[in-house]
Design a protein around this nucleic acid. Structure first.
Lengths: 204, 204
DNA sequence: GTCTTGTCGAACAGCCGTGTTCGAGTTACT
DNA sequence: AGTAACTCGAACACGGCTGTTCGACAAGAC
């Protein structure tokens, strides 16, 4: 990732244009070539190499930017109050981000080593884990399964929903509620009543 | 996929050896080249091209074989009796298959168009859908979410578990029960008690 | 035992992508 | 206005992989 401060104005503009174009191209085609990306950015291939020393580094930079934005979005979600309602809010926010950049993830998976993918996912997932553990502490979420596993379930279900949407088998409007209902059910302690749509627990 | 009947004996042997070697290589490296595969099969590259006209066709054949076996495994599972216990049995069987060939799926996803991947998944998933709909009919499974979606949840959770195992965050012994517990919870109708480990519903 | 069917290695052709170099031209800082 | 930073296009070297052709050779079928 090139230094963006202290550089000439047009250079910074080009770096931004390249990142934007790369994101757009990689979403369309995960194997997009450097030439394609440079052309889409309105920039010579040589210029691109002046900012990113290799295709891998470029893909990494694009992916880092996407994950950083995802992290910021998730950080803005209020996790206070009822854990079940907070989960619904977290799903609602995560959902859009994941859906938009799921093709980008595919591109990253082809160009970057798996450890790197995981590493960049850690920040966003920490937020999920924090909510999960709070919910477990107050009994709203199940504690009989490993926390790692439940976090993975969150991740895999949200991404699975994005794939279903892409395949046309899930309506965009139906997605958030379906995901929320599913995860809520999956996170509920065994033996407890599963309540519809994150209503506060009533002491029946 | 080459014709296997009416050919000379050594030709059939070679085709089998190539398919085996291809599966092994692609699991190790999803981008394994034709040379690698031919060498691993103890066969000349030219011979391989004599049986499979392109790399794509070879990968397709390997994947078809794997999915056919998966289908047979799932077909052998008894889905009668209590739907929740049947789900547990189905998970137990699916689990091994998916875990073994998840790297093969990655290879297929890189070489084959998405529609083809989906097409070859349909047979195994039909079995899941059949169980799901039976469970919905007798009230054991929830009916307030689209069937397509719940089938997708089954698929994505099982594959997600395989990924977690591969990353070393989930123990192989813990996987089947974790998956089963998760899916059972996700499939339970809202407002009903989630029972641990597929016990028959008791009329409390 | 003959004849068809496969097999093999080496070599070739072609393609596409990456990453680099060069020299000349342009743009922005001060 | 001058200078340093940046851009550009064309061209090059390089490598890896695919898919094909050839002629000689081996193995199974009948």
């Amino acid at each position: 990732m090139p230094v963006t401060t202290g550089r000439r104005a047009d250079a910074q503009r080009n770096v931004a244009a390249i990142l934007d174009a790369a994101a757009a191209c990689l979403v369309r085609d995960p194997d997009a070539s450097v030439s394609d990306i440079a052309a889409a950015a309105g920039v010579g291939r040589v210029t691109l190499y002046g900012h990113f020393s290799s295709r891998t580094e470029l893909v990494d930079a694009v992916f880092v930017r996407a994950m950083t934005r995802a992290h910021e979005t998730l950080d803005a979600v209020d996790l206070d109050g009822d854990a079940r309602q907070a989960l619904a809010r977290l799903v609602e926010s995560s959902w859009q981000v994941v859906d938009e950049s799921r093709m980008l993830l595919v591109a990253a998976q082809r160009a970057l080593p798996p450890e790197r993918i995981r590493e960049l996912h850690e920040s966003p997932l920490r937020r999920v884990r924090a909510l999960l553990e709070r919910g477990r502490a107050d009994g709203g979420f199940r504690s009989d399964l490993p926390a790692d596993w439940l976090v993975a379930v969150f991740y895999t279900v949200v991404h699975g929903a994005a794939d279903e949407l892409g395949a046309g088998r899930l309506a965009a409007t139906a997605a958030p509620s379906a995901i929320t209902a599913t995860l809520l059910a999956a996170f509920t302690p065994p033996g407890e009543r599963v309540l519809a749509d994150a209503l506060p627990l009533d002491p029946s």
